[in-house]
C-alpha cells in the first residue's frame, strides 16, 4: 500500500513556567492510503499533540517542534509556512474534534459553516456551494437538508451536530481525516451510528483516517491498524488483530485487562498501578517501567528500541529481547493469545 503520510522521529516540547515539558519524544508512524489508523493511550500520552502537530494547530509561542519530519505529498509539514498550511487545512487534511458543541460557531448557520471551505478552497460560487452543501448534509444523514442548512447549531442534537462537523470536514474530500475522539461525547447508540457513517463515507470518498480514542471497543470496531502511545512515544503498533489478540507490551496488556468484558465475573478489575510519567523530567529508561510489574533492571536504565514481532507488528519492550526471561502475561491476555495462535494454525 502507498504511504500517504509519514511521521519521522517527531519531538515536540511545551515551554512552561516550570520548564520544558517534552510531550512527544520521538514518534514514528506511517499512514497508508485508505486505511484507518487508531491511536490509543491515556490522557497526557501525547495522542492529541501528535495529530495537532500534523495540522500545525499547536499554540504558537509556547510549543515547539524540536526535530523530526511530517512528510505529506513530498512536503515537510513540520516546517511549512502558515500560508501553505492554510491551503492544506480543510482541503487535503481535515479534522473532526471531540466536542461538537464547541467546534461549531454558534452565531453562524450550519449551511454557511459547511460552505466556508467550499468557497475558500474550491472557489465555488454561492449557488454551487449551496447545492453541494445540500448533497453533503444528505450524505451524512441529516433529513430535510434544504431547511436544515438555514438553522443554527443550537437547533441540532449532539449526534446531529457531530454529523454537521463531519460534513464540514469532508466538504473538500480530504485525503487525510483526523478524528480526535469524535464519539466520546456521544451516547452509545448515537456513537454506533456515527462510526457506521464514518466507515461508509470512508469507502465513498476514499480517505485515510487517523482515529484518536481511549475506548478500545471503538478501536476494535473502526481500526485497520493500531498505535498505542505512552509517555510521548508509540510503544506498540500493529494490525488490529495483532494488538487485540497478540499484544506484546505490558502497557497494552494493562489496557486490555482493565476493561471488563460482558461475561467477566465477580473478580476485581485489573488496574495499572501508579501514575503517568512526569514529562517535565522524563525518565532515563522506559517511561512505563515504574508501573510495570514485569520491569527488569535494564528498563530503568535504557529505553527499549522497537522490536519486530511480525512485518506489521512492532513493540518497544525489553521483554522481546532474545536474552529476556519468558514472562506470563495477565490471564485475560493469555486467553486472547491462545485464540490468536489457534486461528493462525487454522489458516495454515
Amino acid at each position: 500500500m502507498k504511504k500517504l503520510l509519514e511521521v519521522k522521529d517527531l519531538h515536540i516540547s511545551f515551554h512552561t513556567f516550570a520548564g520544558e515539558v517534552q510531550a512527544i519524544r520521538g514518534v514514528d508512524f506511517d499512514l497508508h492510503e485508505g486505511e484507518t489508523l487508531a491511536i490509543v493511550g491515556e490522557s497526557g500520552s501525547g495522542k492529541s499533540v501528535t495529530t495537532k502537530s500534523i495540522m500545525r494547530l499547536l499554540p504558537q509561542g509556547n510549543s515547539e517542534i524540536k526535530s523530526g519530519e511530517i512528510l505529506f505529498n513530498g512536503e515537510n509539514l513540520a516546517t511549512a509556512s502558515e500560508k501553505k498550511m492554510q491551503k492544506i487545512r480543510g482541503k487535503d487534511i481535515s479534522m473532526i474534534f471531540q466536542d461538537p458543541m464547541t467546534s461549531l460557531n454558534p452565531t453562524m448557520t450550519i449551511g454557511k459553516q459547511i460552505m466556508e471551505p467550499l468557497i475558500k478552497h474550491r472557489n465555488l460560487g454561492k449557488k454551487e456551494a449551496t447545492e453541494r452543501t445540500i448533497k453533503l448534509l444528505d450524505l451524512v444523514g441529516i433529513p430535510k437538508p434544504e431547511t436544515r442548512l438555514k438553522q443554527y447549531p443550537h437547533q441540532f442534537s449532539g449526534g446531529m451536530r457531530q454529523r454537521v462537523v463531519i460534513a464540514i470536514a469532508l466538504a473538500c474530500a480530504p485525503k487525510v481525516l483526523i478524528a480526535d475522539e469524535p464519539t466520546t461525547a456521544l451516547d452509545v447508540t448515537i456513537q454506533g451510528q456515527i462510526l457506521d457513517l464514518m466507515k461508509d463515507l470512508q469507502k465513498k470518498i476514499e480517505t485515510s483516517i487517523i482515529f484518536i480514542t481511549h475506548d478500545l471497543g471503538v478501536v476494535a470496531n473502526v481500526a485497520d491498524r493500531v498505535a498505542v502511545m505512552y509517555g510521548g512515544k508509540i510503544v506498540e503498533v500493529g494490525t488490529v488483530d495483532e494488538i487485540f489478540y497478540n499484544p506484546q507490551h505490558p502497557y497494552t496488556w494493562g489496557l486490555i485487562s482493565s476493561m471488563p468484558s460482558l461475561d467477566s465475573q465477580d473478580e476485581e478489575l485489573f488496574v495499572i498501578p501508579g501514575t503517568p510519567p512526569d514529562l517535565l523530567h522524563p525518565p532515563k529508561g522506559d517511561a512505563f517501567a515504574p508501573r510495570n510489574p514485569y520491569a527488569m533492571k535494564i528498563d530503568k536504565e535504557e529505553q527499549p528500541p522497537m522490536f519486530k514481532v511480525s512485518d506489521t507488528h512492532y513493540a518497544a519492550t525489553w521483554l522481546l529481547h532474545p536474552d529476556a526471561p519468558k514472562v506470563e502475561p495477565p490471564l485475560a491476555v493469555q486467553e486472547r493469545q491462545a485464540k490468536f495462535h489457534a486461528s493462525i494454525k487454522g489458516d495454515k
Binding site: 452509545v188 447508540t189 481500526a223 488483530d241 487485540f244 460482558l262
Partner: peptide, 22 residues
C-alpha cells in the same frame, strides 16, 4: 438496541456486529 450498540474490545466480534435500531 442499547445492548447491540456496546462496542467491545474484540475486533472479530466487531466485524460481525449487527446493530439493532429502536
Amino acid at each position: 438496541s442499547l445492548l447491540s450498540a456496546i462496542p467491545l474490545p474484540d475486533p472479530e466480534y466487531e466485524r460481525s456486529r449487527k446493530r439493532k435500531a429502536y
